[in-house]
Every structure is written in C-alpha cells, then in structure tokens.
Design a protein around this nucleic acid. Sequence first.
DNA 1: ACCCTAATGAGTTTCATTTTCATTTGCTTT
DNA 2: AAAGCAAATGAAAATGAAACTCATTAGGGT
Lengths: 155, 155
Amino acid sequence: MGTNAAGFNNILQTWGYKPTTQRQAVLEVILKNQDKHLSAEEVFAETKKTNPRIGLATVYRTLQLFEKVGVLQHISLDDGCMRYEMADPEQKYEHQHLICEVCSDVIEIREDMAFFAEKVFLQKGFRITTHQVKAFGICKKCSDDLECNHGNDGK
Amino acid sequence: MGTNAAGFNNILQTWGYKPTTQRQAVLEVILKNQDKHLSAEEVFAETKKTNPRIGLATVYRTLQLFEKVGVLQHISLDDGCMRYEMADPEQKYEHQHLICEVCSDVIEIREDMAFFAEKVFLQKGFRITTHQVKAFGICKKCSDDLECNHGNDGK
DNA sequence: ACCCTAATGAGTTTCATTTTCATTTGCTTT
DNA sequence: AAAGCAAATGAAAATGAAACTCATTAGGGT
Ligand SMILES: [Mn+2]
Ligand SMILES: [Mn+2]
Ligand SMILES: [Zn+2]
Ligand SMILES: [Zn+2]
C-alpha cells in the first residue's frame, strides 16, 4: 500500500471519498512528475492532456484533498503560487529545498533535522509537527559558469 | 549607523532614493513594531494614524524599497499575505520561526544554522545566501492547556 | 434502472499585490 | 524665492491565484 495508482483508491475509500476519473487523472500526473514541484495551473495543464474536460476548480479541490489524505504536501517557493509534491509518510520532517537565484533550479536535500526539533522542544517546549527549510543561493552549475566568465569575458 | 530614523536617510540617499515623509512614516511604524511581523495592510493601517493621506500602493512600494536597501526582509507565514520584519545585517542567516497551529502565535528562535550551509556547500556546491526555517507545531502554552483538559473535561 | 449524495465545471467572487497615469513633492538650478 | 524636473505619490483599475456558487453530472448502493 501507499501511493501507487492501486493503493490510492483504498486511501480515498478509507477517508470516504470517491475515486473519480478526475482524481485518478490528477494522481497520474502527480506520479509522472514526482521529481517536480507542480502548481495547480501546471497540474491542470498536464491533466487536460488526457482529460480535457477537467476544470481548474476541480484541480484545486483535488490537490487539497490529496494533501488532506496524506498523498501530497504543499510548499511555497516564493514564486507566486502554491506548489505540491508527494508527501513522504516515512519521513517525519519534510525534506529541504535549495533554490538557485540564477537559474531557478530547485535542488532537494535530505539533511537530517531531527536534532533541530529536539532542541526546540527542550528549549522552548514547542512540539514541531512539520517544518520547512528553504534556502536561496547559487547552485554549483551557475557558480561554475560565473567562475568561467572571469577570465575570458573582458568585454 | 544602521536602522534608526537618523541613519536611515543616509541609506536611502546612498541608493539614490528620496527620504519622503511617507517613507519616514512607514519607517517609524516599522521601528515601533520590531517584535511583530506586519503585513502591508497592517503597516498601512498603522501609518495612516499619523499620515492619513498615505496610499496603500505607496506602502507596498515602500516595503519593497526597504527590502531592496536592506532595511527589511519578507517572510511568509502561510497566512495569505507577505509579512515584513527588520533585516539583521549582523546575522548572516535569518532567524527561525515557530508557528503554533493552535493559537497562531509566532515564536522566534536563533538556532545557529551555519553548519547547515557549510554541509550543503561541501556536499552540493550550492552557496546559500539566505535561508528560512519555518516550523509548525504546538507551542508550550497550548500544549499545557491541552494537558489540563485531559483530567477535568469529561464532557 | 433508480436514487441520493458527492463531485464536477463554468462562471463569479475575493482579495493581495501590481500597474497606470495624472498630480504632487523633494531637490537642484536659476 | 521662483522655476524646472524627475522621482514619488495616490486613486483607481488591472492582475492573478485561489475560493466560492450553483446548476448539472456521475459514483455506488438499492
Ligand atoms: Mn521537494
Ligand atoms: Mn521574525
Ligand atoms: Zn543555478
Ligand atoms: Zn499556541
């Protein structure tokens, strides 16, 4: 069980929701783009390719539903819209995102942050249920590119 | 020098911007609310108390300007609008926010995250310029309240 | 096949933020 | 102090993501 097209229907049924064609279609888009962080509009555009009659409102509702039943989680990459990615029930805390300010590439890392939550609880009594680490900077590729242009770019 | 009403004009002049009455008024609101994370609407409402003729668009523009010149930084607390707080030029990385899911209180902490940036650079070659840690959970107070209601809340 | 409710989709609405543009203001030059 | 001018402002309109409305459709049980 988990998040494949098969065990998915069980999840919905467990929660009392119907596995409609739209929800299946959106799920397939999600599954085919696990490496990406899609926005509602992007999911909408992708889903329309196989299901042209789907409405944008349904996509918004479906993404929220998927988040509620634990299939998705949303993140904000500060680009003007909410984005979604598969939720990892194994992982207590979300993974982290590195966002390149030059090429806008998003790199995922899985630095262990458990100590962080522990320390916060010990020092503040605050019980963290979820946390997000988002870092902006320059990725290796862009860093190397800039390096290159030092020597042979004398106008 | 730095971010007091006095050194402020220098900052603007250095960048070629005029220290207008509106900008001074917004700055005072910011200085008087350093412990808070105000939204544009909130800054607008506060500023109107002393400067009733200021327009909302000017507040938006001013907040963006202040961020550009390094006086402010924006954060998203996932409550539907951008929020601003004083930027701390001493601190290389932003402080962290704990957001209580029960009472919506925002707690600030200053856990050192330099090791995080170092590790990321060593492992990925990604140079972090700024990063944000945002954690959701239950604050001590709300946690204690819930505890209390266990014994004497039998319907 | 029938029923009932959940689900959908087109259109409308909300609301934060941005843009437009005519007017005003802060400075610099007379 | 008056003139000149670009920067800054404010009112209003525009934008765009997300939520809502409501008439219609489609699951799933009977
Ligand atoms: Mn991710
Ligand atoms: Mn803060
Ligand atoms: Zn890059
Ligand atoms: Zn609380």
